[in-house]
Design a protein around this nucleic acid. Structure first.
Length: 786
DNA sequence: CTTAGTAGGCTTTTT
DNA sequence: GCCTACTAAG
């Protein structure tokens, strides 16, 4: 087979082993996707029918890309029969086919995170619980992690550990909430994202015949990004592969960064224990980065204890060392990054599309953005609110959901008064209460308000009636009119778009654009489906759209723009030049992670992911002060910088005072420039830019507040910099970080950070149970202990 | 019932 | 600082 020649020895062995379970440990940049695609092509050549191969990925995008690459190897006609998709997409398909076996209809709705959240809120309220104690988000994540670990609401109550933990967290009625939540979902014929995996497990557990059917059907199973699977996913594929053991999982334990979403790194670490005769293949040759970058990353990840031993190497040139930058503030950090980018561009070393800024949190993007705009550097920000999470889009989808599934209470709640039609909260609550009282859906109550004694005035009753009639018309049409034309009618009839015509605010314009974009997507959907002879009805569209995210829509990497995104979002991508910014304690690693060794290791892996995105050059920067949550914070360089072997680092660039002054000059220039922000946006004309609408709409207010903060921080950093001119930034603190100190009131504590503030030394001390306090050294009487 | 104003909250987020 | 989600007045 010709394409096997394009693989190295390890890759080829991994591809050719098809007789039993195998684990492919694929280091960063080791050609993982290539191995996976070639392996599938190999399986096809070996005689496996495409429809007998199940390949699971974590994003639709990954699935689509892999499918098209396989199509190039074996032809579209064959590739299209592969079962390739995300866990959620594939198993929702199976669940729809088998729905009635587990008490659902095949049209079940999929509740997204905000639907779940809203449902949980209403449950907490109905139980008369305090939502300060029972925080909806907390409840939601508890339920989610229970589901990820396949603990049903029945099992929850008898799970000693969970019950105890709930007692401890002062939320003893968690179990009850979970139970009602489950019932409500079922009543609404709705599954949340976690249900798609949980219910698949329930289906396989309670219906051995169904399991057997799929076991026999899927003759080879492949899983990508295996390090990020959770227990529910692990068990599904374990059950499916039980008989033949023809399963191949691919992943890199060093890049496991999604434990907060339930991913369990033990799945990959314990693979050999779970699959007795598993073969392990290690892809250790990196084709992406220079030696300096690979070595630096290796020395970093080596500090993690919990990992599968491997040594990533590269045959590329040594390359430049990683440059570490120290700045006085987040503003200067942005300015410095912009400056470097401009220089690289000017020297023709890199073009903008080869550059990326990676950060730990989305909130960091603002300052960077300002600096880039100031320097006329075009950028694209990834992350933030996705297209499908925008209000107007969710409204349209909610109408669709209601039309296909009248039991969908969350959809009903969302659209019943959107746009405003005089059905307010009081009415909606009465409606829902009456429905609950009679054990029927709100939709049924609306159908016969007299029968259910709905306590509303005749005017309100008429409004409910006409709303119901409007929806009922669409319900009758949903099987005869295609999705595109139906949704078009929905948007017009319901008045969703009408209200955006009346005013010409940027909000309205952006909302209308988004709705138009959705309609375009629908049109494409309709045309593609019609062409291939597939059904293009509303239910078909909904089945797909509920599992779609923003990651799937865009792909204009060709644009000459730099990329800005969180490190999480950057996984799987590569750039010639990478800036990893905000390498500070409490930010990266996140303050949430420093308590636990396990979480700290995950943060280190995250940093590993960040560095290994770089092909040629990598910069790491930290600021000694930063605006966070509206106030100035002082911080120390991240401990992770110390984890990198210094021989691969180039240590701080000390800025000359003159150079520093330049930043302020730049800032001043910008004051006159702010009014032209709108014009600046023409750098980024594509409406598919994420956040377009939110940024757009708040533009003026934001620039005003931003201006204010700019002015404030400037005076602050200026006074600080004048301190620093005669007092170098790396002053020797009176009490070094890490020292134990004793405070009269707070007791024993440990120095977390030391910084200069307006000429005085400021220490941050962790007093354990008394909390972390920031103290000015000249006031706080601290006793230094050895 | 709608709206404007304010209090609280806050990592990461492949589905 | 910025966003959301709830509360008080129209």
């Amino acid at each position: 087979m010709k394409f096997l020649d394009e693989l190295n020895e390890n890759q080829r062995q991994a591809v050719e082993y098809v007789d039993g379970a195998s684990l492919i440990i694929a280091g960063a940049g080791s050609g993982k996707t290539r191995v996976l695609t070639y392996k599938i092509a190999y399986l096809l050549k070996k005689g496996f029918a495409p429809s007998s191969i199940l390949a699971l990925t974590f994003t639709n995008k990954a699935a689509r890309e892999m499918k098209s690459r396989i199509a190039e190897l074996v032809g579209e006609g064959i590739a299209k029969y592969l079962w390739m998709g995300t866990f959620h997409a594939i198993f929702s398909r199976i669940l729809r086919a088998e729905a009635e076996k587990i008490g659902y209809t095949s049209n079940f709705s999929i509740y997204d995170t905000s639907d779940s959240n809203s449902l949980i809120k209403s449950i907490i309220k109905s139980l008369n619980l305090d939502d300060k104690t029972y925080k909806p988000n907390m409840v939601q994540s508890r339920i989610s992690s229970a589901k990820n670990n396949l603990i049903t609401h029945n099992a929850y109550g008898s799970h000693a550990e969970l019950v105890e933990s709930d007692q401890y967290a002062k939320v003893p009625r968690m179990h009850e909430i979970y139970q009602i939540y489950t019932e409500k979902c079922k009543q609404a014929d709705a599954m949340d994202f976690d249900d798609l995996l949980l219910q698949t497990n329930i289906l396989f557990r309670d219906h051995p015949d169904v399991l057997q059917k799929y076991q026999a059907y899927f003759k080879y199973i492949l899983v990508d990004e295996y390090q990020d699977t959770n227990y529910a996913q692990y068990l599904i594929i374990r059950k499916l592969s039980q008989g033949h053991q023809r399963i191949c999982v691919v992943g890199d334990d060093s890049q496991s960064i999604y434990s907060f979403r339930g991913a369990n790194i033990d799945n990959i670490l314990q693979f050999r224990n779970n699959y007795a005769n598993a073969q392990i293949f290690k892809l250790e040759r990196n084709y992406r980065s220079t030696k300096a970058i690979v070595s630096a990353a290796n020395s970093l990840i080596d500090k993690n204890k919990n990992r599968i031993p491997k040594t990533v190497y590269t045959e590329k040139d040594e390359g430049e060392r990683i440059k570490v930058l120290e700045l006085n503030s987040d503003f200067e950090e942005g300015a410095m990054v912009a400056k470097f980018m401009k220089e690289f561009k000017k020297d023709d070393e890199f073009s903008y599309k080869d550059m990326a800024i990676l950060y730990r949190t989305n909130a960091q993007s603002r300052v960077l953005e300002d600096q880039l705009r100031k320097n006329a550097i075009p950028y694209r920000i990834y992350g933030g609110l996705s297209f499908y999470q925008r209000k107007e889009i969710k409204d349209v989808i909610a109408y669709c959901r209601l039309i296909c599934n009248p039991s969908d209470e969350e959809a009903l709640k969302r659209v019943i008064n959107t746009p405003a039609r005089g059905i307010g909260n009081t009415t909606v609550n009465k409606l829902l209460e009456t429905a609950a009282l009679h054990g029927v859906t709100a939709w049924e109550v609306m159908g016969d308000m007299l029968k259910y004694n709905l306590p509303v005035h005749s005017g309100t009753a008429n409004k409910l009636k006409s709303f119901r009639e409007m929806i009922a018309v669409f319900m009758e049409q949903k099987d005869t009119i295609d999705a595109y034309h139906l949704v078009d009618a929905v948007i017009k009839t319901t008045g969703l778009i009408t209200e955006t015509y009346s005013d010409h605010s940027p909000e309205s314009i952006s909302r209308r654009e988004n709705i138009d974009e959705l309609l375009n997507a629908l049109k494409d959907f309709y045309e593609e489906r019609t062409e291939s002879g597939e059904s293009a009805m509303l239910v078909d569209f909904l089945a797909e759209v509920s599992l779609l995210t923003d990651q799937d829509t865009d792909n204009e990497a060709e644009d000459e723009k730099i990329t800005m995104m969180t490190v999480h979002a950057a996984k799987g991508l590569e750039f010639k030049l990478v800036f990893v910014v905000g390498m500070e304690e409490s930010l990266f690693p996140s303050a949430f992670a420093v308590e636990s060794a396990r979480e700290l290791e995950e943060e280190r892996r995250l940093f590993y992911v960040a560095i290994t995105r770089a092909e040629e050059r990598c910069f790491i920067s930290y600021a000694t002060s930063r605006f966070r949550n509206g106030q100035m914070n002082f911080s120390n360089p991240s401990r992770f910088i110390k984890d990198i072997d210094t021989q691969y680092l180039e240590f701080p660039i000390k800025k000359s005072p003159a150079e520093r002054d330049n930043y302020y000059d730049d800032d001043m220039d910008d004051f006159s420039d702010f009014g032209s922000r709108r014009a600046t946006r023409s750098y980024y004309p594509k409406s598919s830019d994420r956040n377009t609408s939110s940024r757009y709409t708040n533009d003026s207010s934001k620039s005003v507040s931003r201006l204010r903060s700019l002015g404030r921080s400037q005076s602050q950093s200026q006074s600080q910099s004048s301190d620093n001119v005669d007092q170098p930034i790396d002053f020797t603190p009176t009490i070094p970080v890490g020292k134990f100190v004793k405070h009269a009131k707070f007791g024993l504590g440990k120095v977390v950070s030391v910084s200069m503030s307006a000429g005085s030394e400021k220490v941050e001390v962790d007093f354990g149970s008394a909390g972390t306090k920031t103290l000015l050294l000249k006031f706080a009487k601290l006793e230094v202990l050895d």
